[in-house]
Nucleic acid binder design. Structure first.
Lengths: 150, 150
DNA sequence: AATTGACTGTTATAGCATAACGAACCAAGA
DNA sequence: TCTTGGTTCGTTATGCTATAACAGTCAATT
């Protein structure tokens, strides 16, 4: 992502928060910026290390609280199988998301397929479950690592 | 699960391992037994505590290695969003699996839908990904906790 | 100025997982 | 039988992920 694109994403996030009455504080904005700046999912402690470069000694709760806010406002997603965080690709339209993750290089692609979301929801309903959140992640090899292996 | 059912499952696991040339040692068998005995997913450290009751002081690697073996032989599944382990419902037929998990009581139901598996695989293929493993978990409220809330 | 509520800082701790090394065990061939 | 090599297990130490609990800060409102 270019720094121009990052600025744009931050501005849009700021606007969305304003509309919702949520406060994208400097700390939260900074964490979002760090996540946007990385094209790979980022771990909480890696973010913490970056934060410390600018703000001195901070504890894990500082970054985890910021992440909690960003997740609640659907500005980022958590990749469960990597315990890492990635910027949401379309913050204007909150959505369930799916990930393809390369076991080799860690490349993580956000995909968005409504059919699979509907099917999983129906599977839940059929059993009386009220599905609140879906975690759908496929692990394997990305195209680049596939060719490299041959 | 009744103790008769547990015995049956253990025998079948033993047979499957024998056929495969895999060794279901006393330790691994004991860990599987503990997992079978619980109808909820069980955490590694909880298993460790149980093991210690019979065998004295043991370290985490002991139980994690046993879990690794049981996972590799598809005798158990890992519930990623709970960091916990649950017995496989059909060890004779290895399969991708999905889970419905209650955020309230932790009840976890293994479901098995081929359609969703195929769709996710195709989503991967369409992007050049070779999908090796699928994690599909729906979190929400189980029927019992739904009624209790009203 | 005082109060309230949200946000952040700080310390401590809990929970999950693996690295590294050595001992015990076991199977297979010399 | 003896050795050899591989697998399994015990043990210690450590690393990574996440949260509890409490104190300080700040802004907006009363």
């Amino acid at each position: 992502m270019t720094s121009r694109q990052i600025e744009s994403a931050l501005s849009r996030a700021q606007l969305i928060c304003k509309i919702r009455g949520a406060r994208l504080t400097p700390l939260r904005r900074r964490v979002l910026e760090l996540i946007l700046s990385s094209d790979q999912p980022t771990g909480a402690y890696s973010l913490l290390a970056e934060l410390r470069r600018g703000r001195g000694k901070l504890g894990p709760p500082t970054v985890y609280r910021a992440l909690e806010f960003l997740l609640a406002n659907k500005l980022i997603h958590k990749v469960e199988t990597s315990s890492a965080f990635i910027a949401c690709g379309d913050i204007e339209h909150p959505h369930e998301t799916q990930f393809m993750i390369c076991d080799d290089c860690g490349a993580t692609e956000e995909i968005r397929d409504d059919e699979i979301v509907q099917i999983l929801r129906r599977l839940g309903e059929g059993r009386g479950f009220a599905v609140e959140r879906q975690v759908i992640e496929a692990r394997g090899l990305c195209p680049a690592c596939r060719s490299a292996q041959r």
